[in-house]
């Protein structure tokens, strides 16, 4: 019986570390995009590398937890929901890494006039992702606050969508910021990439809503 409780403690610790890493990655992502907009390239690169390290750590933790859950036959009733949560929340950190790598490779030229809009988009997306991590913690720790966090995630995802559309309208509505269509399409792609972070959060929260209902006695 003691072994059973030790296994539970270990998995609890691993899940907490995994969520901590994702939370850290979201904060670093937020800062890195702002560094990029301010042309602070060295700091941007350093932050991108940090996110990469965190993403690798999360992948290892996720694989370890999955192995433990199956090999020790833990959580037979909610194992599917738990693994689904871990797989989908992994998309959040994958997106942070992917966006930063694409910024580094493609180096999109963002007009200074749009910096404020981009910052607003990053903030809304990061808030949605942050509340997603909080909702996931509430699910694991069986807290009533889960619905509150899920609602906030949905709210910020919607906000991110609004900012995304606003930037696209500015881009395609006139030639004041970018003149060529290729440049407009290029920036539009990055707007979508940043907004994808909030979409990933929404996806996790939709699964969490169902899992929470299923978990009643």
């Amino acid at each position: 019986m003691g072994l059973l409780f030790n296994q539970a403690s270990q998995i609890e610790g691993d899940v907490a570390s995994l969520l901590d890493n994702i939370s850290n990655a979201i904060m670093i992502f937020d800062a890195a995009i702002k560094n990029y907009l301010n042309n602070e390239n060295d700091i941007f690169i350093k932050r991108m590398e940090d996110v990469n390290i965190l993403e690798t750590a999360v992948d290892e933790l996720r694989r370890g937890i999955r192995h433990q859950l199956y090999s020790k036959m833990l959580l037979p009733e909610s194992r599917g929901d738990m693994l689904s949560l871990l797989e989908t929340i992994d998309n959040v950190i994958d997106t942070t890494e992917e966006v930063l790598v694409q910024f580094d490779i493609q180096r999109p030229k963002i007009p200074k006039e749009l910096n404020k809009d981009f910052i607003e988009l990053v903030d809304a997306s990061c808030k949605a992702a942050d509340f997603t991590v909080l909702a996931a913690r509430c699910y694991i720790n069986n807290s009533d606050l889960i619905n509150d966090h899920i609602n906030k995630t949905f709210f910020y995802e919607h906000e991110a969508d609004k900012v995304e559309n606003r930037i696209k309208r500015k881009l395609f509505g006139s030639d004041d910021f970018v003149t060529d269509l290729a440049g407009k399409a290029h920036l539009s792609k990055f707007v979508e990439l940043i907004a994808k972070l909030s979409d990933d959060g929404q996806d996790v929260c939709e699964r969490l809503s169902v899992a929470t209902i299923k978990r009643s006695i």
């Binding site: 539970a8 403690s9 609890e12 909610s78 720790n141 069986n142």
Partner: peptide, 10 residues
């Protein structure tokens, strides 16, 4: 008591 889902299993 707010026991975590994993501990609850044990």
């Amino acid at each position: 008591t707010r026991i975590s889902i994993i501990r609850m299993d044990s």
